[in-house]
């Protein structure tokens, strides 16, 4: 993340309530252009509502947001020109065929009939749904439908794309494909705001992450920074000669951090938050003539990060609250 880069999204104290329920309690976001930025949180944390405000679908109660330099309320049409939305519920028309869906969007975006048709064919081909292009979307598999949904967002390449829970309910193979598409998009210069409740997904894709819980950002940083902020990573070494363990412990204690002896007499672990210190520790051991069979550095998982930040596990929170998909967050 380059902090000097122009910001794709800049939100200040964005808030939204539905009746008595506060969905978003004041969110600040600064998303640089050209990256995948993850908004991570359990169901009901306010992710979808945040996206809906940024995508100009609902107006915030208070606070403000600029997307690609345009105010989401005062310049909503300018924002709509530049963004596209891939919803939690695949927002394609089930009663039309895949091809008709793409042609429809092409026409609505201003393509002429023939151009819209050609674009639809190109996208169906690229996303591996050409053979099913003439079938009604309601007969599609989950993975095909999700790919069509993403293709529908790319009929005209957006500068910013909102990906809301893009892999919820997908099998691992389809999930990997969605991830590959997301990486390809960023490689072509599109900024992606990724909302997810999967820690692994944010870790895999995102350059920066905002962790949100109960409508607020509770932590922000790169995946590495977030893990480091918990600070419970460790350097593990396995000694060639168990007899060198006391000497090795002394070296690591000095160079790295608190040493925790392992049950195995040939092993040692030292608490360590960053890889530079770990490398130094390994180098110091070599200088002291202590041979290593192997060594490893592990970092806390984002699950641990979430637990440390919120006091409750992400999965517990998700299981404990009813799922809040797009429509149900809205009063009818």
């Amino acid at each position: 993340m380059t902090l000097q880069a122009p910001l794709a999204i800049e939100a200040t104290a964005l808030a939204k309530s539905f009746g008595d329920a506060t969905a978003v309690a004041g969110i600040d976001l600064a998303v640089p252009a050209g990256v995948i930025y993850g908004v991570l949180g359990p169901n009901g944390a306010g992710k979808t509502t945040t996206i809906r405000m940024l995508a100009t679908l609902i107006a915030p109660d208070s606070g403000s947001a600029r997307v690609l330099g345009h105010d989401v309320v005062a310049e909503a049409d300018a924002v709509r020109d530049l963004v596209s939305l891939t919803g939690q519920l695949a927002s394609v028309d089930e009663d039309l065929t895949g091809c008709e869906n793409l042609v429809l969007l092409g026409r609505l975006l201003g393509l002429r009939r023939a151009a819209a048709r050609a674009r639809a064919d190109e996208l169906l081909e690229a996303f591996g749904i050409a053979a099913a292009g003439g079938r009604l979307v309601k007969h599609y598999s989950g993975g095909m439908r999700r790919r069509l949904d993403i293709a529908a967002s790319l009929v005209v390449t957006p500068s910013l794309m909102f990906l809301d829970e893009p892999t919820t309910g997908l099998d691992p193979r389809s999930r990997n494909q969605v991830w590959e598409i997301a990486r390809a998009l960023v490689a072509e210069g599109t900024t992606i705001l990724l909302c997810t409740q999967y820690l692994e997904e944010a870790d895999q894709l995102a350059d920066g992450i905002a962790v949100i819980d109960r409508g607020r950002v509770i932590a922000e940083g790169t995946p590495g920074q977030l893990k480091a902020s918990v600070g419970t990573g460790a350097l593990h070494v396995r000694l060639l000669d168990p007899a060198t363990r006391p000497a090795a412990a002394a070296v690591l204690e000095r160079a790295v951090g608190t040493v925790v002896p392992a049950p195995d007499p040939g092993r040692l672990s030292a608490q360590c938050a960053d890889s530079a210190r770990a490398a130094l520790g390994v180098a110091e051991l070599a200088r002291a003539g202590i041979g290593l069979a192997d060594f490893s550095l592990d970092q806390p998982s984002l699950d641990e990060v979430f637990l440390a930040l919120t006091g409750h596990a992400a999965e517990d929170a998700a299981a404990g609250e009813p799922p809040a998909p797009t429509r149900e967050e809205q009063p009818s």
């Binding site: 975006l109 201003g110 151009a115 050409a130 490689a187």
Partner: peptide
């Protein structure tokens, strides 16, 4: 049919569109 997205084709497809007028 190949039931998979072709990443190279996806990249080609998204790099090739000028935005038409509204």
């Amino acid at each position: 049919a190949p039931d998979a997205a072709d990443t190279a084709a996806v990249r080609r497809a998204i790099s090739s569109t000028p935005r038409p007028p509204r």
